[in-house]
Design a protein around this nucleic acid. Structure first.
Lengths: 237, 237
DNA sequence: GGGAGCCTCGCTATTTTTGGGGAGGGTAAA
DNA sequence: TTTACCCTCCCCAAAAATAGCGAGGCTCCC
């Protein structure tokens, strides 16, 4: 490929702590000559993790305003497998427009390119490039680096996961076949009695599975258990 | 990068149907000079999708024996983000050993390298290279192509997803902010009264949101509504 | 051979959720 | 201006879920 990202890939593999991780985003930003490079977790289960070149003011504001819940970038990427240019997203709602303008105020560029990355246990992260430029210039930059960026995003995520492995019990819970089956039926909308009938067992037995799954998942109630099982990828509806 | 996989990447982007997809696996196999290239979907019980160069006898046997449920490759990849060489996996159980020997009998090589890929809605796929050779030779081959293979796997998955009619056609319902918020709180495990307190509204009002969301989502009960909202990417827990 | 985990079933009692029915005011687009 | 959707609140009876107590048989691994 045509850019100098090969060398950068070597660099990032040397990263050993959070500071170096953060430095790597800065380095990539300078290498590409753009305004911002950001990697962050949008984690359902687990802790926050993020690094990048956005101003801390913007990060604080983002969190404070809970923009996470309406950011079109996040929703767009959450439903896609492929990277996405921000302008492909749906900015039609008033809230989205306000969010975009607010971002510009805080030094975020008007062009963005975000790669969704998914790991085990429902891990979900975004890797974003951002700049202030024309559509054409941006498209060209992206086209030049498209494939390398996938690998770069992959490497960033690998590093981020390796940091997390220390802090947390790395192996998520697993459900027994019957438990998974029970939770899956509930996720499909069946009531307990229907699910029990479907599985050919007594409703009481089904209840035992649900309870057991709930404990394994650390869930407070059935709905929570289903939500966790889903977002951890333990079941598929 | 150093190999001829760049050209192959161009080829795979031209793929337009399942036959060409299948052909692409063959082409890549020949390009790398190895025994097998396989892409397959591991949506536990969902739709099947797969292509590759394994003999149909082996595929049939795999399905018939329900090896899916104990295959160490699948288990290992499910818990990992990074690609994995088969020999790093846990083959210690008796069932795993038997499975491996059975695979050899059916023409599967002793060396394997599998890349896990995750898409939206819990999509999970594996991209596997397989060959019969020594550890050293295999490691070298992998090291040479490591990064390109990530991109190749990515492209294969992109194509596979595009074939899936589901992902394209449907424009799902959307939830109002309060509805989304209500459903999100439930997905986090809060009870109705807790969620209502959190949102600063009466429990009755909260119920109206849930009901309304349920109808929009075509869900039979609250748990179903949460599950649908989650898998449609309408909320993020 | 013992322990761990899985699968199956039973009971009672309490709390929570659900499925209907209403009503009024706001905002926003057509 | 009308229509539509959003937000907020209320009642009631029936259904479902939860929490706790049990029990026995099965397989697999150390």
């Amino acid at each position: 490929m045509t850019t100098g990202l090969q060398d950068f890939l070597e660099d990032i593999q040397q990263v050993e702590n959070f500071e170096e991780f953060q430095d790597a985003t800065v380095k990539l930003r300078d290498l590409l000559g753009i305004a911002h490079v950001v990697y962050h977790w949008v984690n359902s289960v687990g802790e926050r993790f993020g690094a990048g070149t956005y101003s801390s003011e913007w990060v604080d504001r983002y969190l404070e305003k809970d923009y996470l819940r309406m950011d079109p970038v996040i929703f767009g990427c959450f439903q896609r497998f492929t990277p996405v240019s921000w302008k492909q997203l749906d900015w039609s709602s008033k809230a989205a427009k306000a969010f975009f303008l607010d971002a510009l105020d805080y030094g975020v560029g008007n062009q963005g390119y975000t790669i969704p990355i998914r790991g085990p246990n429902g891990q979900f992260a975004l890797f974003t490039l951002n700049h202030n430029t024309t559509d054409d210039a941006w498209d060209q930059l992206i086209a030049r680096n498209e494939r390398d960026l996938v690998v770069v995003a992959h490497e960033f995520n690998k590093k981020a996961l390796s940091f997390d492995a220390h802090s947390e019990a790395q192996v998520g819970p697993s459900l027994s076949p019957r438990e998974a089956s029970a939770i899956t039926h509930l996720a499909k909308g069946l009531s307990r009695s229907q699910a029990a009938a479907e599985m050919g067992i007594s409703e009481h037995t089904l209840r035992v599975y649900i309870e057991s799954a709930r404990h394994k998942l650390g869930a407070m109630n059935t709905t929570h258990a289903v939500a966790r099982a889903l977002s951890m990828g333990l079941i598929i509806v």
